[in-house]
């Protein structure tokens, strides 16, 4: 084994490259990453108290729910949604979700930016701040 040094150097570079997201965040992103952002509720949302499901479920499941909504509306043409508590909603991102959560920046974007996800909903669907 004459290439010991080369191999070790190679391994070090390899691990540095593979672990890039971890050490990069440790060094440069620590302040931002440590605290999860709080979402802000509009007055309307506060007054309603519950969303179409429990807050905890909404936090973890809203993407699946939206996915199901869009498939059911677009593909099956069913445009009425009866939630678990028996209340009826129009399954629509722009007309239902954004009606209460009209503060996209402080409600949607904060978490999405923190989690570094970039849903393309807004490429087509409007939100209140935009249409005003």
């Amino acid at each position: 084994m004459n290439d010991k040094n080369k191999i070790i150097a190679g391994l070090v570079i390899f691990f540095l490259a593979v672990l890039f997201p971890f050490w990069f965040n440790l060094i440069f992103g620590a302040a931002d990453a440590s605290t999860a952002p709080e979402t802000e509720l509009t007055d309307k949302a506060k007054k309603a108290e519950t969303c179409i499901a429990e807050t905890e479920d909404m936090r973890t499941e809203h993407m699946q729910i939206l996915d199901q909504w869009r498939d059911t509306v677009v593909r099956d043409g069913q445009r009425t949604y009866v939630a678990e508590d028996g209340k009826e909603y129009e399954p629509s991102l722009s007309n239902t979700c954004m009606d209460c959560h009209s503060n996209k920046e402080k409600f949607c974007d904060r978490c999405h930016n923190y989690a570094s996800v970039d849903p393309y909903c807004w490429d087509c669907h409007t939100y209140p701040e935009e249409t005003e």
């Binding site: 179409i52 499901a53 429990e54 479920d57 973890t60 499941e61 699946q64 059911t72 099956d76 043409g77 069913q78 445009r79 009425t80 949604y81 009866v82 939630a83 678990e84 028996g86 399954p91």
Partner: peptide, 20 residues
């Protein structure tokens, strides 16, 4: 398992709506 919906309670449902 999660997508099957939270346990208990009535499952959310879709319908056409009355005016359709």
């Amino acid at each position: 398992a999660k997508a099957a919906g939270p346990d208990g309670g009535q499952r959310p449902q879709f319908s056409m709506g009355d005016k359709a």
